[in-house]
Computed example of a mutant assay.
Amino acid sequence: MKKGISLALVGLLAAGSLVGCGSKPAEQSSTGGSSQPAPSNNSSGGEKSGGSSSIEEVTIAVAHATPDSETSHYHAFATKFKELVEKNTDGKVKIEIHPNGELGGEREAVEAVQIGTLDATITSSGPVGNFAPLSNAFDFPFLFRDKAHAYKVLDGELGAEVSKQLESVGIVNLAWAENGFRNITNNKRPIKKPEDLQGLKIRTMENKVHLDSFKEFGAAPTPMAITEVFTSMQQGVVDGEENPLSVIVPQKFYEVQKYMTLSGHFYSPALFVINKSKFDGFSPELQKILIDAATASRDYEREFIANLEDKYIQTAKDSGMEILTASEYDQAAFQKASEPIYKKYEAEYGEFIQKILDTK
């Protein structure tokens, strides 16, 4: 489904002159110190992986906040990453997966990665703006035309620019993964136009652009960690939430939500991040294995989500949800309601957003 941005929004940002990107994809190793014992560095990064005696033995803990089920996209990423890394190191490197938010919500996990009490995590972009402010620019409503546009931006120089900001605070982004286009669910009524959200308490990510957007849409946005959402909807603390199908269905939100609108109002990227000191302490060969495995897992997870989208929708229908399709809701009205958000943040993100819009 094609996701455009209204001409009014494009014109809003076109007035300012652009600055050149000027950045190359961020290097994945740097000169930071390591809390680990110095590894053997007697191999070149160009050697083929798999069984080299130069690869150190290490365990890497990877956390995520989604279920460890066969339809969970983060778990699919994590298990593929584990498979590839352990295979290409002949088992010298062990990947220890902690699913279901057992080590905390996304913000807690990213903070833990930053300070080094957790090695790595897969997270939505929601909390990342607290560490790399430019990442907030990816979260504007109706910004990405489609998934291909999003991939071009995230996997190119603009994604690398955000990754560079993360490195400056002790976090290395190994790959941009995916959540997908986000959709609105609630227990009160079908959502066809912004007025239908009036007064509804909608859980959003802990993200200032998302919060302001839902205020403009007429809702009462309520930020909270994903690990708290099911219970909060079950108990009536919030009326609804907004998430990609890849979250709504594996998290079984259909058990506590009646209506879903396939609104696609935000595209939601994900990141696979690792503690910088830990990563810098690895040999160049192991660094390359981790980067290659993360890239392959990114591609695997994106395809995994695409292949399951129809199944996600059918599962929600079979479980009793009433679904308003993309053609049935008023996207133009939501785009119009989004214009004040672009105006509010034009000075902060306008040039970067224009680069996103100009990406072909």
Rank of each mutant, 00 (worst) to 15 (best):
S268Q: 11
A78Y: 10
P194L: 05
N275I: 02
L13S: 06
T71Y: 11
G116P: 02
G105R: 04
K201C: 01
A160D: 15
S125A: 12
V19H: 07
G105Q: 05
L308D: 04
K311L: 05
N130H: 12
G51P: 05
G51C: 12
D155I: 03
I248K: 01
T185N: 08
G4P: 08
T227F: 09
H98M: 10
I274G: 01
A316S: 02
V273P: 01
V273T: 14
Y345I: 08
D196G: 11
P133A: 04
L174K: 02
Y254Q: 01
I5A: 00
I353W: 03
N243Q: 09
L174W: 02
H265I: 15
K360Q: 10
Q354N: 02
T79L: 05
K192A: 05
P194K: 10
E57L: 00
D239C: 09
Y349P: 07
F282S: 00
V113G: 00
T295K: 15
K24L: 12
D358V: 13
L118D: 04
Y345S: 02
M233T: 02
E351T: 14
P99N: 04
F352L: 15
R189E: 10
L271C: 03
Y151T: 15
E195V: 11
Q251E: 09
I248V: 10
T66K: 12
Q251K: 08
T325Q: 13
H210L: 13
I55S: 01
N186V: 05
H75E: 12
E108K: 11
L308F: 07
A347I: 01
L12M: 12
N307V: 07
D358T: 15
A160Q: 10
F253L: 14
K164W: 03
A296V: 01
A76H: 13
S124C: 10
T261P: 07
V153A: 02
F142I: 07
Q198Y: 06
V110M: 04
D318I: 08
N183Y: 06
Y342K: 03
S232T: 06
G156T: 10
S327H: 07
A63H: 11
A148G: 02
K92C: 01
G51Q: 09
E86S: 08
S23R: 14
I55M: 06
K201A: 09
E301N: 09
S29F: 15
G320N: 01
H73R: 13
E242H: 13
